[in-house]
């Protein structure tokens, strides 16, 4: 085997190994915003967010949403800047949570008009190691269906305290969705569906007895 051929083979296999890791094959994100000035501004906004430790994926998605919706460059720029601001607010309100899912959910809730203090209340309802992304998503959805935020928060935090799983809380959101689509008043739908989920949960005494000490509530 000649030295030349061996080196060639080695180089080919090294390239094959590198390209087998798809993440390494990705180049920098190029935003297809036609307005060059707006594109630079958006990319700077995303870079600033990254420098502040915020997740950039939701911001890229927000910019791409604008592109797909054929928004002007200026509007995309404003939307991305607003999204970055909401992500930062969510991070403060949900501290110490830092997961992308939780921050994104928090930012979406703020975008739809959920008061920031309610995000704090949801964060406080579960131990910090447990993600509150789903309860926040359900709160957002219930508010989007026309239920007053305070009423929705009350039902969700009661379910959280009673030991409902994220899926059980999510099922509340989808059931209310379906009921409202079928013509039921949003408040009535929430009340009846919350009762339904509650009936699946153990009694407060049993939940308190079986919960880990960090989850027990006075």
């Amino acid at each position: 085997m000649s030295m030349h051929r061996r080196v060639l083979t080695l180089v080919s296999l090294a390239l094959a190994s590198v390209s087998a890791v798809p993440a390494l094959a990705q180049g920098p994100v190029v935003l297809p915003i036609a307005d060059a000035k707006a594109r630079v501004a958006v990319e700077r906004e995303i870079a600033r967010a990254a420098a502040r430790g915020l997740p950039v994926q939701p911001l890229i998605a927000k910019a791409m949403e604008g592109v797909t919706k054929q928004a002007t460059g200026e509007r995309i720029q404003v939307a991305v800047a607003s999204a970055a601001k909401r992500l930062e607010q969510a991070r403060t309100l949900l501290a110490p949570s830092t997961s992308v899912a939780e921050l994104t959910s928090g930012a979406d809730a703020l975008a739809i008009g959920v008061p920031g203090a309610m995000l704090k209340q949801i964060r406080a309802a579960w131990p910090v190691e447990r993600s509150v992304a789903m309860p926040i998503d359900v709160l957002t959805e219930l508010v989007a269906r026309g239920i007053p935020a305070r009423h929705a928060l009350e039902q969700i935090t009661v379910l959280m305290a009673r030991g409902a799983t994220p899926s059980q809380i999510a099922s509340l959101g989808t059931s209310v969705q379906a009921d409202v689509a079928a013509g039921l008043a949003p408040d009535a739908a929430l009340e009846v569906r919350a009762r339904g989920v509650m009936s699946l949960l153990p009694s407060p005494a049993a939940a308190a007895a079986s919960a880990p000490s960090g989850q027990r509530r006075p």
């Binding site: 000649s2 051929r5 060639l8 180089v11 094959a16 390209s19």
Partner: peptide, 20 residues
């Protein structure tokens, strides 16, 4: 086993394409 120059190029090309 060694590859010829063309063979090595083909292997590298296929690998890069698959990664892409």
């Amino acid at each position: 086993p060694s590859l010829s120059g063309v063979g090595a190029t083909v292997v590298a090309g296929i690998a890069l394409f698959a990664g892409f």
